[in-house]
Amino acid sequence: MATIAELLERSGSRHSGYSYAFLDETAKRDLRRAMLKAVAIPGYQVPFGSREVPVAKGFGTGGLQITLSIIGPGDVIKVIDQGDDAGVNANNIRRLIERTTGLDTTLETAGATVIQTRHRVPEEVLREDQVLVLQVPYPEPLRLVERSQTAARTMHAEKDYARMWLALYEDVVRKGEVTIGAGYPVVVNHRYVMASTPVPRWDLPKLHRSKALHLFGAGREKRLYAIPPHTDVAPMEFEDHPFEVEGFGGTPCARCGAAATFLTERLNADGSRTLTCSDTAYCDLRLTGGKAETWY
């Protein structure tokens, strides 16, 4: 068992004034304890003492604290922002992790052990030995229908989700379908209604019985929750208005030609628009002729 000082020395950390992985050991222990509870009660929001990290609140501090408390020697880290490894937010967080741990980072989904992400789930199927850490802006799915946090917690405790169902009913009645695009509410393990972070509806089927552990952290709201591997995750839907993922009208990715991935629109210099894969790592993999197991 290596001491923290040894770990720091071995990793060649350039910030010798800080603990390994920035957070102090008590903070990490507090987070891990909360995570254990979250895993034990899938979809339940566990409060934790959110620490200050050198990232502004609202820019992934919850996900970052989870990542920092679960990583150690041997881990390979990947950070993505809206599917993109090159996002400013992703770059900053990746650099912070590198400098405070000396761990290797990667752009490849298959090569990572811990993937921190904002608003997307990778297109490649995750394995048992991988952990997906999601940054959550608003952990409370009932915020839409109940302003009081105390009342919302009581509703969770009693599994009283009639008001949430009513909101979906109203949407169907007035607009013909449920119009929630990202962060569609899901029922985890047949018990808790959970905010699926703002991942697009496209990504929700990937959460159902996934082999990987999913951890969700909301730093500003001081809540974290989890979907353990092989857990049932079901979108809230009506019998006669089933849940549907987004469609792109059969348009393939303009870069790699993939026919069934989640696409993002890019504005070109001449004002025209092209649709390319939102998951840049998967797009690159296809361009270099690599193969990976996907969800489709």
Binding site: R163, L166, V173, F238, E239, H241
Partner: peptide, 12 residues
């Protein structure tokens, strides 16, 4: 509908 939804009606 709210009371019906509370009673687990799930068909719009």
């Amino acid at each position: 509908a709210e009371r019906l939804l509370a009673a687990d009606w799930r068909s719009v």
